[in-house]
Design a protein around this nucleic acid. Sequence first.
DNA 1: GATCAATGTTTACGTTCCATACATCACGGA
DNA 2: TCCGTGATGTATGGAACGTAAACATTGATC
Lengths: 208, 208
Amino acid sequence: MSTSARAAYHHGNLRETLVALALAMLEQVEPEQLTLRGLAEEAGVSGMAPYRHFEDKAALLSAVAEAGFVELRRRLASVDDERKPRKALIAFAVAYIGFACDKPNLYRVMFGGAPPTPDDRLTADPRTVFGLFSTRLAQLVPPRRRAEAFLACLSLAHGLASLIVNGRIRAPADEPAKLAKRLAGVMLRGVLTSAVAEDGSPRRRRRR
Amino acid sequence: MSTSARAAYHHGNLRETLVALALAMLEQVEPEQLTLRGLAEEAGVSGMAPYRHFEDKAALLSAVAEAGFVELRRRLASVDDERKPRKALIAFAVAYIGFACDKPNLYRVMFGGAPPTPDDRLTADPRTVFGLFSTRLAQLVPPRRRAEAFLACLSLAHGLASLIVNGRIRAPADEPAKLAKRLAGVMLRGVLTSAVAEDGSPRRRRRR
DNA sequence: GATCAATGTTTACGTTCCATACATCACGGA
DNA sequence: TCCGTGATGTATGGAACGTAAACATTGATC
């Protein structure tokens, strides 16, 4: 109905359209009730058409997840302008939880199911979402502690997001940002104290 | 084929059998490919029989999840014998991650999907899994900080478990327990430092 | 022994994923 | 100019699944 499509038998670029439609639909429906047929119909195309572009449903969801990671990374990058790494990390946490709360269904697609490729796990590769994160952490934490600090922050962020998104804890009503900020603060104190104590027992407490 | 069943038209207690079968199957298959029909067949019963005991598939999964929480609580309770709360909390973390690693599919059933009842969220109620947790935390953390400490620990534990269970991080090869212990240590340092510093900035670091 | 509620069966329908065979278009070389 | 070739979308249909409705079977109770 638009510029290039005369009596378009061929859709143009169905692949991108399907991913975009899926992203749009996830604003309102849960991942489970996202169907290939539904997407195809929405795109004004036959029910089997998507299979020209995606091996199966999982492949489409995988592409959707990838788009989600791009968006998430964009959000994190946009708050990476703080000079102090500690503030940047807290801003990351707020943005991360904000993303999950804004797009809970997309977040579930991103972290549910099997990973896109078996060995494509989360890493500290700076090009990835978590690389941003990791780079900032490296400015605060000595090398020996980086791996554990990375995992701890990652787990906290994902855990909180996941609990909220899956309705396991009451969404903090008005302010998930406030909650993210407080928990990130607690975590960072742990990470930094760990860096200071440098090893083993955290700091001789009391007695016994 | 056993004692009470002659030519059993009636199964006996199909409900429990179905839950037990689901638990057993989850040792090997993923939650998505768990079907009511499959369970019914496995129980030697017609495909519609489960509907006498469960409203729908979600209801059965909900019962399975409940059984999972009972088991998880049992595991946590069994390591609650440390005198020192700090050690108990670390033991909880290890047991928690151990459970998730032992039964990844069950863990996903427990925390995936929608919560059993809309307002049956995770709480610090001592009868629940997380109540054990919460009770120990209360021995270390002043009242004003308890809610945030609880959420922080919960998020960390669930986040780590979830990342491992969903294949997002390389299962720490041989020793998830070691990882759990280290991350729990980091978290507790944060929580305790928070309790000590009592507010705001953690502890003047270095400079700048 | 007859009645009844609980439990399991049968049949059937709609939805979904997907395999296969076919139609239509875009484009480049003879 | 015309045709072949590959990319893309369509049509048809099967299999698995969830679930609704009507029916059969059983054991307990009066």
